[in-house]
């Protein structure tokens, strides 16, 4: 049996296969002309991007919206990693959106998560001429790392302080204080009976005070009544007394007027009466002084020479120029 080759079918197959192969090659080479459907954004991260590779996914709130285009070390700042993200055009990247480095479970593979971005915020515009930069936020690992570092540092400080607090001396002091508290507690137990008695006495005192207050209130009522009676008596009696007083005042006024007239006349001017006498008296005293002085001198003379009284025997010393 002679096989008949259908060259037409073979040729058609070759053409179709070659066309498919070229199309696959274009698809594989990403010459699919989708550049118009994506926008490019820059992202600068200071932490390690281990596990993140080009073509890694970019997710917006968990939805795949693009991929990492390139990963470079920022030529202007060696502490930063510069990522170029290729994100679908319709993705609402806002000015307050930020990017976080996240990991798939325990595999160690990483992706970029775009979070944040409120509804009211304007879009972060990125076009062919200007590439916008999405702010980055520390990843969970970094935050955990920083938190753990802080916790460890604080724990270390706390332990140091605790070590100082619980030194031997303080422990002894605390033990001593507890011993004193125990002793105080024992003493307070002993005072329970006295405290009970004191409370009972206080209750009794309160009862007495209540009784006394009632008595005082009664007394106050009585005083109020007495005051009312006194007021009536005073009103009546004082009226008469004031009349008498007014009469006495008038008489006293007349008497004072008479005395004033007498005084004005100089009948009782003691100064004018006494002044001449005082002056005379002063002169008399001065003369008396003189006299008593001379008398004293004479007596002294007689005392020194008593015989002079009868015979004048002594010879007093004459003064200069006297014989």
């Amino acid at each position: 049996m002679e096989s008949k080759v259908n060259y037409t079918a073979v040729g058609l197959f070759v053409i179709l296969f070659t066309t498919a192969l070229v199309a696959f090659g274009f698809w594989l080479g990403k010459y699919n002309g989708d550049t118009k459907d994506y926008r490019y954004y820059k992202l600068f991260i200071t932490e390690s991007v281990a596990g993140l590779s080009p073509e890694a996914a970019v997710k917006f709130r968990g939805v795949d919206v693009g991929k990492v285009e390139t990963i470079l070390i920022n030529p202007n700042n060696s502490e930063e990693i510069e990522l170029t993200l290729k994100i679908k055009k319709e993705t609402p990247i806002k000015t307050d959106s930020y990017a976080i480095l996240k990991f798939y479970g325990i595999t160690g593979l990483a992706y970029i998560e775009i979070a944040g971005g409120t509804k009211e915020s304007p879009l972060l515009v990125s076009d062919e001429h200007t590439v916008a930069t999405i702010p980055s936020s520390p990843s969970l690992i970094k935050r955990l790392d920083e938190s753990l570092s802080n916790v460890a540092s604080k724990l270390s400080t706390t332990l140091d302080k605790a070590d100082r607090l619980f030194n031997d001396r303080n422990v002894e002091n605390v033990a001593l204080t507890l011993e004193h508290l125990r002793s105080l507690s024992v003493q307070l137990d002993g005072y329970q009976n006295e405290v009970r008695t004191l409370i009972q006495q206080t209750i009794a005192l309160e009862n007495n005070a209540t009784g006394s207050l009632n008595s005082i209130q009664d007394a106050a009522d009585e005083t109020k009544k007495s005051a009312a009676n006194f007021n009536n008596v005073v009103t009546v009696k004082m009226g008469n007394t004031l009349d008498s007083l007014e009469k006495s005042s008038r008489e006293t006024h007349a008497l004072i007027q008479k005395i004033e007239q007498t005084v004005d006349r100089g009948d009782y001017d003691l100064r004018s009466v006494a002044a001449p006498t005082a002056t005379e008296f002063n002169e008399l005293i001065a003369q008396t002084k003189l006299l008593s002085n001379e008398l004293e001198q004479s007596l002294n003379h007689l005392k020194n020479s008593p015989s002079d009284l009868l015979f004048k025997t002594s010879k007093p010393t004459p003064g200069p120029g006297e014989k």
Partner: peptide, 21 residues
């Protein structure tokens, strides 16, 4: 000095009075 005597002083300390003045 509350007296009519006429005093004189000889030297620093001696005091006397005139007999006839």
């Amino acid at each position: 000095l509350i007296s009519k005597l006429f005093y004189y002083r000889e030297g620093e300390n001696k005091i006397g009075s005139y007999l006839y003045s």
